[in-house]
Write a protein that binds this DNA or RNA. Structure first.
Lengths: 182, 182
DNA sequence: GTCTATACATTGATAGAC
DNA sequence: GTCTATCAATGTATAGAC
């Protein structure tokens, strides 16, 4: 069960969901094809199980009440480093999640859940940038989210860990600065 | 020929490359399956043709010599607005290109070409941020690229054009500011 | 619980008629 | 140039033995 989902996630992340067959998953997990259908009704059900299981981990990671007591700079640092930890704990999962954004047909049910992930930090960040004096905190929050997603996008293709962590620190530094004009 | 590539690109972008069959492409293009193999040796060859044809448009869009005469703010504005125009001229193509980043196996030959696309602006931007006084212009250029890619990533899932253009202007405004500490 | 065997649809691709 | 017919291979999924 656990071994199957792990194998499937790895394959989905590397080869893409549609491009991965049941036979490949079974082979990688070291079980027979038939056994898969004892646990899941089909390939889509297996995908759903993977997503659902991993979804919980992110939710309780960023506690809104906890963050509200922090300073702006601290909050940004916690969110960036938290995202980094979350990613490093299971890179394949996040890659899979992002790749699904390009599969309009496959599982419309998951789409809202995936979109929510991106907006997870959005609501949290607006008051932060208000505090920092930004005249358009919503746009600044979106810019922050876009920068984060962009860095993660790089990490999927380029495999330089160093470079990755450096950019995370650069983001913390950049976005923690209070607004300043001229 | 043109109609086939157009239909294929649309399907690839919306359903994903692996999830699109030759039959679906032929049907969408209004031709028979067999005809496809008269123009292309296979599905991968069709993909290659699509990518190659569209690649040229981006290359001569950003002329390095031309940009070197511009001010920092002007260059940023040109690159952002140019990217926006390029995207709006053929959104499906850019979505397809990005989605291929998640297909490690499919067409390793295209991988470097796709990666280059992301770095297109990277080399151009470093001297810009030097001019603007940034102590780490490389990181700032990467942040700029990440922010751009992140915004495009949003546009693939959310379909709000307005919101999209607003963020592009916000990026121009934000990144055109000279470096300032405290 | 797990595997083998098999059914059935769809896939990419080819051959040959028009 | 274009289509129909057809191929072998692979896909998902099921049934039944152990």
């Amino acid at each position: 069960m656990e071994i199957i989902e792990q194998a499937a996630m790895e394959l989905f992340a590397h080869k893409g969901y549609s491009n991965t067959s049941i036979a490949q998953i079974a082979s990688a997990a070291g079980v027979s094809k038939g056994l898969l259908y004892n646990y899941y009704t089909g390939k889509d059900d297996l995908l759903k199980a993977i997503i659902n299981k991993a979804m919980g981990s992110a939710d309780h990671f960023f506690n809104e009440d906890f963050l509200s007591q922090m300073s702006a700079a601290e909050t940004i640092s916690i969110i960036v480093n938290g995202s980094l930890e979350l990613y490093k704990a299971n890179p394949a999962y996040w890659k899979l999640l992002t790749s699904l954004m390009f599969q309009e047909e496959v599982l419309k049910e998951l789409q809202p859940m995936i979109a929510q992930k991106s907006q997870m930090s959005y609501g949290l960040m607006i008051p932060i940038f208000e505090k920092l004096g930004y005249p358009d905190p919503k746009s600044q929050a979106l810019l922050f989210g876009a920068a984060m997603d962009g860095i993660f996008l790089y990490s999927f293709s380029v495999q330089e860990e160093n470079h990755f962590e450096h950019m995370m620190n650069y983001i913390i530094e950049t976005f923690s600065k209070p607004y300043h004009n001229e």
